[in-house]
């Protein structure tokens, strides 16, 4: 595997995760629990889709076949998507979304912190810019974890269940394969075990503040590295890609 091939795949992992999470967050529009929160969630969606655009565009440039961000977003199937299993989990109730976003944001926060000094200039620049955004996402979601964890009996039970149910998809975030090996050697990517240690610490701190139990590590699903997904992704893509697929000759 060449460095370039590895890097393209790496961009898709980041870009796809951002895109799918952005798509999920945009589903909240007009469904928020408080008007102000509706606006906050849309902001998060916009940040993620923006991040996706940068990464997908870069993947296209590296590939050199003239594929654009939209070609990547709209013309790939489930088995060509490299997003995290976590990002495609359905929104569920507000607590489910908060738990998912918190876990994913904590990951992005540490990933981007490390990638800010990547040897690849584009990755480094993207990480530095995105770090500011995900720092806010992490803060926003962490505060909600605490409010729900330390709110009412009902909210505590709900958010605890959200964490318990989604936990088995977190292992997928940290898995590595040849792509990582190649890029770590080049100083472009970061060893995921380093991210995992920092992620654990952040997650634990917030869960303690929220008076919640960290779920026990049990079986973890994997998928991201091999473009294996839950059934949810196919439906998400069918909806998202409908227009360009229905009218292949049209430009939008």
């Amino acid at each position: 595997m060449t460095t370039k091939e590895a890097l393209i795949n790496y961009c898709l992992r980041i870009g796809d995760t951002s895109l799918i999470l952005g798509q999920r967050m945009s589903e909240w529009c007009s469904n928020g629990p408080i008007l102000e929160e509706d606006i906050a969630m849309t902001n998060i969606a916009l940040d993620h889709i923006g991040q996706a655009r940068t990464m997908l565009t870069y993947a296209g440039e590296l590939e050199g076949k003239g594929r654009t961000e939209d070609d990547f977003a709209y013309k790939r199937h489930e088995r060509e998507y490299y997003n995290s299993l976590l990002s495609e989990r359905p929104n569920g109730h507000f607590g489910d979304t908060v738990a998912r976003n918190f876990l994913q944001s904590a990951y992005f926060y540490h990933l981007y912190s490390a990638l800010s000094s990547s040897k690849d200039n584009m990755i480094a620049a993207h990480a530095a810019k995105s770090l500011k955004e995900v720092t806010y996402h992490l803060r926003h979601s962490a505060e909600w974890v605490v409010r729900l964890g330390d709110g009412t009996e009902e909210s505590k039970e709900k958010i605890q269940t959200s964490f318990d149910e989604i936990w088995e998809y977190t292992g997928d975030l940290f898995e590595m394969n040849e792509v990582d090996d190649v890029l770590i050697k080049e100083g472009i990517a970061i060893n995921q075990t380093e991210i995992k240690a920092k992620w654990d610490k952040t997650v634990d701190e917030v869960l303690v503040r929220a008076k919640l139990q960290r779920p026990k590590d049990a079986y973890m699903h994997s998928g991201r590295l091999n473009a294996i997904h839950s059934e949810y992704l196919g439906h998400l893509l069918a909806e998202m890609q409908f227009l360009p697929r229905a009218y292949p000759d049209a430009k939008w």
């Binding site: 469904n31 629990p33 929160e37 507000f94 605490v146 729900l148 709110g151 009902e154």
Partner: peptide
């Protein structure tokens, strides 16, 4: 309605 438990939690917190 779906947001009611969230608003209650935030107020309780």
């Amino acid at each position: 309605k779906n947001g009611e438990w969230v608003r209650k939690a935030a107020l309780a917190y």
